[in-house]
Design a protein around this nucleic acid. Sequence first.
DNA 1: GCTTGACCTAGAGAGAACTCTAGGTTTTAG
DNA 2: CTAAAACCTAGAGTTCTCTCTAGGTCAAGC
Lengths: 144, 144
Amino acid sequence: MTRHAGGLSIGQVAEKTGLSVHALRFFEREGLFLRPIRRSAGGQRVYDPADVSWLLLCNRFRESGMPIATMKRFAELVRAGSGNEPERLALLEEHERTVQAKIADLTASLAIIHDKVMTYRRHVEEGTAAGVWSPKPGPGRRSA
Amino acid sequence: MTRHAGGLSIGQVAEKTGLSVHALRFFEREGLFLRPIRRSAGGQRVYDPADVSWLLLCNRFRESGMPIATMKRFAELVRAGSGNEPERLALLEEHERTVQAKIADLTASLAIIHDKVMTYRRHVEEGTAAGVWSPKPGPGRRSA
DNA sequence: GCTTGACCTAGAGAGAACTCTAGGTTTTAG
DNA sequence: CTAAAACCTAGAGTTCTCTCTAGGTCAAGC
């Protein structure tokens, strides 16, 4: 695809964003873009750098577990133009809380997992087996 | 179900673990338990307290994003009895790293999301709109 | 001008982890 | 004893997020 005023092909955008071309088309069908993607004379997609920035933000949302439906909602608000900033803010704040909660949960789980790791390390080093799970909870307790 | 020597019904286990009875049967089919679940004379499942402890650990694994296939692998190692502790340790260590990475990613995303939240807060308070996404990147830059 | 690689659409398929259904049996409470 | 609640199996269905296929079209290099 010849340069369309700084335009990028779907393949180039895929490379820059780490998303597959399939995923980019999928996102478009889902209405995640801020505006219609331009097309070349031959019908191929032409992306602007702004689309790439937006996709990078979307990627952050995705990586932090935001469902596509929510990204879509956010995109709709942005597309609707100014006036709904409080709604956008509310959406972002809620997602922020969600992410904070997720981090807290993971951190709690991590502590427990780390505990098991330490327990197993001791056992492996010392060649003992006490305190780890066994099929029939043999002589002692079962806990690691 | 009459008490089978401290045994618990599937419903009781569901309540204690927060898993649905469907999920418990599913886990069993998937081979996530450390040993076959006993059955009452009438064919109903009878769980031991040890099964509940194991499920609670499994829940931690699940909540921290461990795939069922990996939990199954861990269960298999435990079922196989002692001797494979180094393998169990390796599995746990890898999961620990995965969780750490996940927390790091989320933390990075959170920083960016928090940034956007702060930006929007300012805009909403001041009634301005500069610096936030708009459909046609109007007068200024587009970044928030 | 032709081959090769990138791109197009519409829609099917995948897989992860459940969840639910249908049709029937067992337990428990009154 | 009986009715309701809980349980059983096997297997189909759901949700989410892509991913892949089939059957072409478009673009770029030699």
